[in-house]
Structure formats: C-alpha cells, structure tokens
C-alpha cells in the first residue's frame, strides 16, 4: 500500500491543458485584442478619428474607453474593461464549473477516486488548477493586449480620465492591482461554478448556472430602485477597480469587493467540500 501523493498538481494541470477548451479559451483572450485593434485601426470609423486622443470608441462619462488608443497600457486597460464583464466571467465559470462535473460525465471521476485519490485532495488539486488557469487567462489577456496596444498605438503612459497620466512603472503597478482585483471579483462566480460542479454531473449546467446567477445579479444591480440593497449584490463591486485609477488609490470599494468575493468564495468552497466528502458517486 505504499503510495505517493495521488493526483499531483502537475498531472492534473497536464490533464486540463490537453483539453481543447483550454486552447479555445486561450485563443479567445488572444483574439479579443486583435479583433478590437483591427476594428479601431482599419474599421469604418477609423477615418473619422481626429488626431490625438479618443476616437474609435464612444466616450461615456468615464471616458476610459476613449483613451484606449493612447498606448499599450490604455489599450490593455480597455480590453480588461471589455472582457471583465463577460468573457472572463465565462472563462472562469468554465474552468471552475467544468472541472469536476466533466470528470463525472466521462466516468473518470470514479477511477480517480478508486485509485484512490482522497476526495479532499481531488477537490483541492482541481480547485488550484482551475484557479491557476483562470488567473493565467487574465494575465494573458492583459499581457497580450499590452503588446498589441504597444505595437498598434505606441508606448504611451497610462492616461486616466481624471488622474492624469501614470509613468510606466506606476502603470505596471496599477494594472497589476486591477488585474488581481478583477480576478478576485470573479471568485464569486468561481465559487458558485465550483460548487455546482460538485453537485451536478452536467458540466454545462455548472458553467451556465454560475453565469446565469452573475447575470441576474448584474441586472438587479442596474435597477436604481433597489437603492442601497444593491450593495449586497455580488456584482456591485465589479467596477471598484476604478479606484486604482485615482491619483491616490481608493481602496475603500476594492477592500469591500475583495472581502465580499473572498468570503462568498470560502462559503461556496466549504459547502462543496462538505458535499463531496459525503457524496455517493454513482455516475
């Protein structure tokens, strides 16, 4: 009965990396900046742009998007802004929601458990790998967008709507904060997806369920009549990273957002573990 640690992290990572959906996710985060930059550079409205700033995009109150073409940093920030609402949500829900449920649907779950991979270890490794893949897709999105932006619009400083410009080193610091914060806000959806993944044998159900919950929350968040009640919605803090674009970083919203996301993540994951501890695997 001599055994090594069952299901090493590296093995699970290989098992996931060889999946086509991982490749598709990577292609998506790489394609998004390429599509956008093509549209801005060669699209129908490209000629209308006045020299200098703005252009190509609409400009709202925040006017963050209008700055997208002012350099690599701004382009990366804008891509983040575009992607954080839906693309990253889908990817994270996919990595987290599909991880256990797909094993169940392929019947490989029971062979891992028979190996035996202790149940908590199985969840822990799967959780770690799914979180890593989620984080990597954000890093790839930001990094690749930066490179695309650098190539297309040059190496500008990071321009912000109200706080002027940040130097390269400051921009790197701010973008790191924003990327990490966006990753953390996605933990709410990640936690739900992972819990659903343990509860169901249908991968699509787990991924879709998490996405639907977040979208419903987004819709509720848009209803002004709900007033302060909205601060209890998980998505109310999705935009708090704006605080990192102030001259002095405004941590208030972000610390609330981090607390909300991490605490809800802990709750969902705890339930997932408790459930999986006792679950009869019949699939």
């Amino acid at each position: 009965m001599k055994t090594k640690k069952a299901l090493p992290f590296r093995v699970e990572l290989i098992r996931q990396l060889k999946r086509k959906r991982t490749l598709v996710a990577l292609i998506l985060v790489i394609a998004l900046p390429l599509i956008v930059v093509t549209a801005v550079k060669f699209g129908p409205s490209a000629d209308d742009r006045a020299g200098g700033g703005g252009g190509g995009f609409g400009d709202g109150d925040l006017d963050l998007v209008g700055l997208a073409t002012s350099g690599g940093w701004n382009f990366a920030l804008t891509m983040m802004f575009f992607a954080s609402g839906f693309l990253l949500l889908i990817l994270v829900a996919m990595f987290m929601g599909d991880t256990v449920a797909s094993e169940a649907s392929w019947s490989t779950l029971r062979y891992l458990l028979i190996a035996p991979v202790p149940r908590r270890r199985l969840l822990s490794i799967k959780l770690a790998v799914a979180l890593l893949l989620s984080f990597v897709s954000i890093v790839v999105l930001v990094g690749f967008s930066y490179l695309v932006g650098l190539f297309a619009f040059g190496s500008g400083n990071l321009s912000t709507p109200t706080a002027g410009v940040f130097s390269n080193s400051e921009a790197l610091w701010r973008m790191t904060i924003i990327s990490v914060y966006i990753f953390i806000t996605l933990l709410f959806a990640a936690g739900i997806a992972f819990l659903l993944s343990v509860l169901t044998d249908v991968p699509l159900g787990a991924v879709g369920g998490a996405v639907v919950i977040v979208i419903v929350s987004n819709i509720l968040d848009a209803i002004d009549a709900l007033g302060d009640l909205r601060q209890w919605l998980p998505t109310d803090y999705g935009a708090a990273w704006i605080g990192a674009l102030n001259r002095e970083i405004d941590w208030t919203g972000m610390s609330r957002g981090v607390a909300y996301s991490v605490v809800s993540f802990i709750i969902f994951i705890t339930i997932a573990y408790l459930r999986f501890d006792r679950k009869d695997i019949t699939s």
């Binding site: 925040l62 109200t162 706080a163 935009a239 102030n246 405004d250 919203g253």
Partner: peptide, 13 residues
C-alpha cells in the same frame, strides 16, 4: 470636485 472618481456611480467623488 473634479478628481477622484467614485466607484458607486462613476461620478467625480
């Protein structure tokens, strides 16, 4: 007034 952006409504805080 102009300066920091509020996270709640994207208005200047």
């Amino acid at each position: 007034t102009s300066g920091e952006i509020s996270i709640q409504n994207n208005q200047p805080q």
